[in-house]
Design a protein around this nucleic acid. Structure first.
Length: 569
DNA sequence: GCCGTTTTCGGCCCGACTGTTTTCAGTCG
């Protein structure tokens, strides 16, 4: 099986950790980390890029040496340098650096002085009170490590919709202190967030810190300074709040929004002009202030377009902004209808009329009714007869309304062999066929890929729903060769869905970007099972924006007449 | 290890907080 980008990134991260612990040049360490982020965020699989003989060394942070190493990994499946480092430094050292309060320097000290190389040995040393005796460490760190070892919380990320609830409540609570903005990966609209980064404009930061510490949902205060406070909420979500003066608002928002890689690249641009960019502003070599009150002012001073937060990942957006050719990203107002909607005919909670009314309330012109097919027995899937009956009901509803159309559709199950759960004669009578995998998630990669490709090539299939089947934090995506899937979408005209349910967000940003680059078209759909669920559309639009999609790339921005032409193949 | 209308060598983002110090290193974001 070809090596995945994420595996290469993980190898590079491990090498970076090990080099750092062994005291290597920190810039060399950073080069590995940067390359890891680049590979991870690539819209195409490295194996395929190499097979197509496309050089890797043009990619940001990947020069001749690392390009060669990546090629070797793809060819052999393993990374010699990493293997050697592991031999010279056995044990769990890379797990140890992940513990709070432990970094490469302290791990090295522990390794050298106490011969600690595993988490078990670390625990024993902590229990015996040996850590506090090490020079540079102390009882506070020993206690902190003991606690961290007691609850080895796997790094927990929160779905964007969950984080949004906390963020909304907390920003309302802090509003009295000054202007409040939620920054970080939340503002970049990542599908999950690790913590909340909140910015408050205030002349006296200590009152903001005090107010945050007094918030009823705070379970623990991790750090408490005059300008920056870190707490953990009862939900486990960590929150950083930073108080800044109004004249630094833009610089702080930029800094706190990230991503880190984007910030580093921007600071590099400032340094080239002998300027300095930090969270307080952009200043020239004499210390004269150039910009800082707004993000727009900073980008302008650096001679580039304003970059929307969703694009700030250092994946090529900076060069585009310098050339003033950023794509006009999709906006929620561009959406004219929803192409994946359920009713109480299967597992939805509302009847067809109410779903249609809710869609209309949002200003939509159309909605595709796509209940499940019979194979989904748990959802009371529709038989061919049921589909015929439902079509007559929809025809009657459409006849009695104007200015809004319910498209007759189905979410048809893709069976194990890639065939569909309803006869072609039925599918042919529908306006739209959405195909989806709901079973046999554990097929081998090539078998699963062939299965899905077969469904996509079926001439009646308009859209492939939630293409990878992931449930964030609950179920991994099934094994699928996304290079082939996205290529097939472009070739066949089968449209790929960005499912906007916050626990799916499937396709994800990287795969959606991959699809765009190949010329495939996408649909952003809510998969609504209730009238309220139409609200999820914005989460799907967020991911579409992270994938650099424009209204042109997304079919449900089209007027109904244009759309119909795209649904028939 | 990468990278270049400053450079193919010599730079490489920047500041806050903590716990340990007795002026600062390490960690973190």
């Amino acid at each position: 099986m070809p090596v995945q980008n994420s595996e290469i990134a993980a190898m590079f991260d491990q090498v970076a950790d090990l080099l750092e612990i062994s005291g290597q040049n920190p810039f060399r360490v950073r080069a590995y980390r940067r390359a890891a982020r680049t590979v991870e965020g690539l819209p195409r699989s490295v194996s395929v890029m190499l097979a197509e003989d496309r050089g890797l060394s043009g990619l940001p942070g990947i020069g001749r040496d690392l390009a060669g190493k990546i090629a070797a990994i793809v060819q052999t499946g393993h990374f010699d340098q990493l293997d050697q480092l592991k031999v010279s430094m056995p044990g769990d050292v890379t797990k140890m650096v992940a513990l709070p309060g432990l970094g490469p320097k302290r791990v090295k000290i522990l390794y050298d002085t106490l011969k600690i190389r595993t988490l078990d040995e670390l625990r024993r040393a902590a229990d015996q009170g040996k850590l506090r005796e090490v020079r540079g460490l102390g009882p506070a760190l020993e206690k902190k490590l003991s606690q961290a070892l007691d609850k080895p919380v796997a790094e927990r990320r929160f779905k964007i919709a969950v984080a949004e609830q906390e963020a909304t409540a907390l920003s309302a609570y802090l509003r009295g202190c000054g202007r409040v903005a939620i920054a970080g990966s939340y503002r970049r609209r990542r599908d999950t967030v690790g913590d909340l980064d909140i910015l408050v404009t205030s002349t006296h930061g200590s009152s903001v810190s005090g107010k945050l510490a007094a918030y009823e949902n705070v379970s623990e205060v991790l750090a408490h300074g005059p300008s920056r406070t870190t707490v953990v909420l009862r939900s486990g979500l960590q929150v950083d709040v930073r108080a800044v003066p109004a004249k630094s608002y833009g610089a702080a928002l930029l800094y706190f929004t990230g991503s880190k890689a984007h910030n580093i690249a921007l600071r590099g641009l400032a340094v080239k002009r002998k300027w300095k960019l930090n969270e307080y502003g952009l200043v020239d070599e004499n210390g004269t202030r150039i910009a800082g009150a707004t993000e727009e002012g900073i980008y302008e001073a650096l001679a580039m377009q304003y970059i929307p937060p969703e694009m700030r990942e250092d994946r090529g957006e900076i060069v585009l902004a310098q050339r003033h050719c950023l794509p006009p990203l999709l906006e929620i107002a561009d959406i004219r209808g929803d192409l994946h909607v359920h009713s109480d005919w299967t597992d939805g909670t509302a009847n067809i009329e109410d779903m249609a009314a809710a869609a209309r309330m949002r200003g939509y012109q159309f909605m595709a009714l796509t209940d499940h097919s019979r194979r989904m027995a748990v959802a009371h899937g529709l038989s061919p007869d049921d589909v015929m009956r439902q079509m007559r009901v929809v025809d009657a509803l459409n006849a009695s309304t104007s200015g809004f159309t319910i498209l007759k559709g189905i979410e048809v199950d893709v069976l194990k062999d890639g065939s569909l759960d309803l006869p072609d004669t039925i599918l042919a009578r529908l306006d739209i066929v959405v195909a989806a995998v709901h079973s046999h998630f554990d097929l081998p990669r090539d078998v699963q890929t062939e299965r899905v490709l077969r469904a996509m090539r079926h001439p009646r299939v308009s859209i492939l729903a939630h293409p990878t089947g992931r449930l964030i934090g609950e179920r991994e995506p099934y094994e699928l060769d996304m290079d082939r899937i996205t290529s097939a979408a472009a070739e066949s005209g089968c449209i790929l869905e960005i499912n906007a349910q916050p626990d799916r967000l499937d396709l994800n940003d990287i795969h959606a970007h991959m699809a765009k680059l190949k010329g495939a078209r996408l649909a952003v759909s809510t998969d609504a099972h209730s009238t309220l669920a139409f609200q999820y559309m914005r989460f799907g639009v967020d991911q579409a924006r992270r994938a650099w999609l424009t209204a042109e790339d997304v079919i449900n921005t089209r007027p109904l007449s244009d759309l119909r032409a795209l649904l028939k193949r």
